[in-house]
Simulated assay, not measured.
Amino acid sequence: MPTTTAGARTLGELSRYIRSKNAGPFWVTVDIFFDDDAAYDCVATSGVIVPELIADMYGVRPDQVKIFFIPDLQVVKVSYPRKTPQGSVGDRDMHAAQQFIPLQTVEIPVR
């Protein structure tokens, strides 16, 4: 279990489910699902999930990151370009199924 700062919880703790997948051969999409409005609102209004965070985590430029907050579905969707095209030499996660893992430990302040 990750250790969190006092007054914070990890994205993995706040979300119901986080998944990543290919969005074509050149992009990865991460979907973060929540069980209720309170958890979704906590993350959506925290100011933590921003292009600079994703860029730093995945080695892309912030202007390449797309983040969508979808309150009606209680989902945050993050897309960024793959470092290597799907299936090319050096691709270590062909389906991008493991790319969500670093996001689980991101700390979100809880009020």
Score class of each variant (00 low, 15 high):
residue 1 M to I: 01
residue 21 K to H: 14
residue 27 W to S: 06
residue 66 K to N: 09
residue 108 I to T: 09
residue 93 D to A: 06
residue 73 L to C: 02
residue 82 R to G: 06
residue 70 I to E: 07
residue 18 I to W: 03
residue 31 D to L: 11
residue 83 K to S: 12
residue 46 S to M: 07
residue 43 V to C: 14
residue 49 I to V: 15
residue 63 D to I: 10
residue 45 T to V: 00
residue 61 R to N: 11
residue 87 G to C: 07
residue 55 A to V: 05
residue 18 I to S: 11
residue 29 T to C: 01
residue 49 I to P: 12
residue 52 E to V: 05
residue 34 F to R: 06
residue 13 E to F: 01
residue 2 P to W: 00
residue 80 Y to P: 03
residue 110 V to N: 09
residue 40 Y to C: 07
residue 8 A to P: 00
residue 71 P to K: 09
residue 80 Y to H: 14
residue 29 T to I: 13
residue 79 S to F: 01
residue 14 L to D: 11
residue 25 P to S: 13
residue 1 M to T: 09
residue 24 G to L: 11
residue 71 P to V: 06
residue 76 V to Y: 02
residue 8 A to I: 00
residue 1 M to G: 15
residue 34 F to S: 02
residue 29 T to W: 01
residue 29 T to P: 02
residue 42 C to K: 09
residue 63 D to L: 09
residue 56 D to P: 00
residue 51 P to M: 07
residue 33 F to Y: 15
residue 56 D to N: 15
residue 108 I to D: 12
residue 24 G to D: 08
residue 38 A to W: 02
residue 87 G to M: 05
residue 53 L to K: 03
residue 52 E to T: 12
residue 105 T to Y: 13
residue 59 G to I: 04
residue 42 C to A: 10
residue 3 T to F: 00
residue 92 R to S: 14
residue 53 L to T: 05
residue 108 I to Y: 05
residue 21 K to V: 04
residue 24 G to E: 07
residue 13 E to V: 07
residue 14 L to H: 07
residue 29 T to L: 02
residue 6 A to R: 08
residue 75 V to M: 07
residue 99 Q to K: 15
residue 103 L to S: 12
residue 75 V to P: 03
residue 15 S to P: 09
residue 6 A to V: 11
residue 44 A to P: 05
residue 93 D to I: 07
residue 63 D to K: 14
residue 67 I to V: 12
residue 12 G to R: 07
residue 19 R to P: 02
residue 4 T to D: 00
residue 88 S to D: 13
residue 89 V to Y: 06
residue 91 D to S: 11
residue 69 F to E: 08
residue 80 Y to W: 12
residue 47 G to W: 04
residue 42 C to H: 01
residue 42 C to R: 13
residue 1 M to C: 01
residue 57 M to F: 09
residue 77 K to N: 11
residue 52 E to L: 01
residue 41 D to F: 00
residue 26 F to G: 03
residue 72 D to Y: 08
residue 63 D to H: 14
residue 67 I to P: 06
residue 103 L to N: 08
residue 49 I to G: 08
residue 49 I to A: 04
residue 100 F to Y: 15
residue 44 A to W: 03
residue 22 N to D: 14
residue 64 Q to K: 11
residue 99 Q to W: 01
residue 25 P to K: 09
residue 73 L to S: 10
residue 61 R to G: 01
residue 66 K to W: 01
residue 43 V to N: 08
residue 79 S to N: 14
residue 58 Y to N: 05
residue 8 A to W: 03
residue 90 G to A: 10
residue 20 S to W: 06
residue 93 D to T: 12
residue 6 A to I: 10
residue 77 K to I: 01
residue 10 T to V: 04
residue 53 L to D: 08
residue 31 D to T: 09
residue 45 T to P: 00
residue 85 P to T: 15
residue 15 S to L: 04
residue 54 I to N: 07
residue 90 G to C: 10
residue 33 F to H: 15
residue 19 R to I: 10
residue 104 Q to H: 07
residue 22 N to H: 10
residue 29 T to K: 13
residue 12 G to M: 05
residue 101 I to L: 15
residue 30 V to N: 05
